[in-house]
Design a protein around this nucleic acid. Structure first.
Length: 505
RNA sequence: GGCCCGUUCGUCUAGGGGUUAGGACGCGUCCCUUUCACGGACGAAACACGGGUUCGAUUCCCGUACGGGCUACCA
């Protein structure tokens, strides 16, 4: 029987979820939806020391805003495999059971070494010019563990409550081969793999043990994660194998990393490009640092998701703007790239612009209204709607609307110097004074009538410079369609602005 | 350092033994426009390098270089 498709997103609550994490969640979500499977949120909070308050809630809210909602797991209604928080699962003794199984079968052992002893070992190895000091088949022979200590001493130590960790007993020289849906076959020799800690001395499992146990128990079909996990995958294969669960192992997919726009390296929390790294605003209570989100920067979730999906994946044709349903219908891990992708802020903005243009003026007005109100501007919906129609063309974000057309709300106090220097001459004052008079006499104030008035006035006044009219009424050299703009401003406002400008010149 | 992964225009990418190497962002020119934009047309711009294999390699193989990741009782 074909295994039911079940994918999990399993972040650890050690900080805000950045876009790399969101993309991992997105790809898992897309695949799960495409195959009518489940998408699960599991919280991997096994590191007490790095736990950040608010991170879990942030992850949930971020996924909600992005529209990539799990149908099972923390914050989304527990399913049949609850609990979905690893700290809670640890209390149930789940991980210890598996660790014990490995100890019993001789594939894991107890290690009593203190951190000082481990440091000493590393220093000793470095002094002996060992390039990669690690706890492994060779070095464990000189350490204090259940493989080197006499049986009764181990027993005594355990009974006396001495702290110990459980380590995986990795063979000395064995080829480990595994398949990755994105990368194909990968082979590593076990001599490169260290004896990973499975259970920490506080009883908590490490990621290595915990994610395997949970993926098995939660019947996960595909384990999707970042490329940074590729080097530890051989250890994971061994754990599945020694547990006798290799046949139930989820398929592996290691995603390429998202790189910084300029230079190289993994994307970091802050970037010079000025674009956010987080889906929604994130405030780290521990460090006191705040990061702005895509949501607050004016991105729509659809645009954000679309952009992320195309970072490292493509549908195989030239389509770029795709709805979520289209992404779901076309997604496959086979079409995910192997190489890391530099994230491009310009292209990212372009995505939002495309989505902005798909919105009606009505929808844009709904988004713009609160932003304008926040600036103390009170205009009715009809005015704002027309304002949106006029400024949207060159905007990438609704949040830019005000800056693009602040002259709709505030009369100018200065006039673009370049344009004035170039176009204002001794005749201008009389020409535009007469134009102002004609405008103030216009009864039916609308786009067409204003246009007609200009045309009709030219034989008498001579050539009217459109840009000069623009600068006289708005103060700036560029902006919305002139006649449309004048029409929206209203006769009184336009005449007042013109008179005011003329009196100063 | 060691191990693993990767490498097509500046960036995101399509393609894949024989192509004028395609698209998108950005950039430039022109057209449209009594202003400002949108838009349209066009253009510059890439197979990292060296060896094989082959009639033929950007495509397959091997090296080199470069980039990235990992190298914790962190995930």
């Amino acid at each position: 029987m074909e295994k039911r498709v079940r994918l999990r997103f399993a972040p650890s609550p050690t900080g805000g979820l950045h876009m790399g994490g969101v993309r991992t969640a997105l790809f898992s979500y897309l695949y799960a939806k495409k195959h009518h499977g489940d998408f699960i949120l599991r919280i991997e909070d096994t590191d007490q020391t790095r736990y950040v308050k608010g991170a879990e809630e942030y992850i949930i809210n971020a996924l909600k805003w992005c529209g990539i909602e799990p149908n099972e797991g923390v914050g989304f209604g527990d399913g049949p495999y609850a609990p979905y928080r690893q700290s809670e699962r640890k209390e149930l003794g789940i991980y210890k059971r598996y660790a014990d199984r490995l100890i019993e079968s001789g594939h894991a052992y107890l290690a009593f070494d203190t951190s000082e002893e481990l440091d000493e070992m590393r220093k000793r190895l470095e002094a002996a010019k060992v390039v990669a000091p690690q706890y492994n088949a060779v070095t464990r022979q000189n350490m204090r563990n259940s493989l080197t200590l006499p049986e009764d001493e181990v027993k005594k130590l355990v009974e006396s409550g001495a702290p110990y960790v459980v380590r995986l007993k990795v063979p000395r020289n064995e080829e480990i081969r595994f398949h990755d849906i994105i990368r194909g076959w990968v082979t590593v020799n076990s001599s490169q793999v260290d004896d990973k800690v499975l259970l920490k001395s506080d009883g908590m499992p490490t990621y290595h043990l915990a994610h395997i146990v949970d993926d098995i128990e939660m019947k996960i079909s595909h384990a999707v994660r970042g490329e940074e996990w590729l080097p530890s995958a051989p250890s994971h294969i061994l754990i599945y194998r020694y547990l006798g669960l290799e046949s139930e192992m989820p398929q592996l997919a290691h995603l390429p990393l998202i790189l910084k726009p300029d230079g190289n390296g993994k994307l970091s929390k802050r970037d010079k490009s000025g674009l956010p790294m987080f889906p929604i605003n994130w405030h780290d209570e521990r460090t006191g640092e705040s990061y702005i989100g895509y949501r607050e920067s004016g991105f729509t979730p659809d645009a954000f998701i679309n952009m992320l999906a195309l970072l490292g994946w493509n549908p195989g044709d030239n389509r770029e703007i795709m709805t979520k349903d289209e992404l779901i219908a076309n997604f496959s891990f086979e079409r995910v790239n192997k190489s890391g992708a530099k994230f491009d802020p310009e292209k990212t903005k372009w995505f939002n612009q495309q989505y902005l243009r798909m919105q009606t003026d009505e929808q844009l007005a709904d988004s713009a209204m609160p932003l304008l109100e926040a600036k103390g501007i009170k205009k009715d919906k009809a005015f704002v709607k027309e304002f949106c129609r006029l400024v949207k063309e060159k905007a990438h974000f609704v949040t830019e609307f005000y800056d693009l057309g602040s002259y709709f709300f505030v009369a100018p106090t200065s006039y673009d110097e370049k344009v004035m220097a170039k176009k204002w001459n001794e005749n201008s004052k009389s020409t535009y004074t007469k134009l102002t008079e004609k405008l103030s006499g216009l009864d039916n104030w609308n786009i067409n009538s204003i246009h007609d008035l200009f045309t009709a006035a030219e034989p008498e006044l001579g050539k009217i410079d459109m840009q000069l009219v623009r600068v006289l009424t708005t103060g700036v050299a560029g902006g919305a369609q002139l006649f449309d703009m004048l029409a929206l401003l209203g006769k009184e406002e336009v005449v007042t602005r013109l008179k005011n400008a003329l009196s100063k010149l």
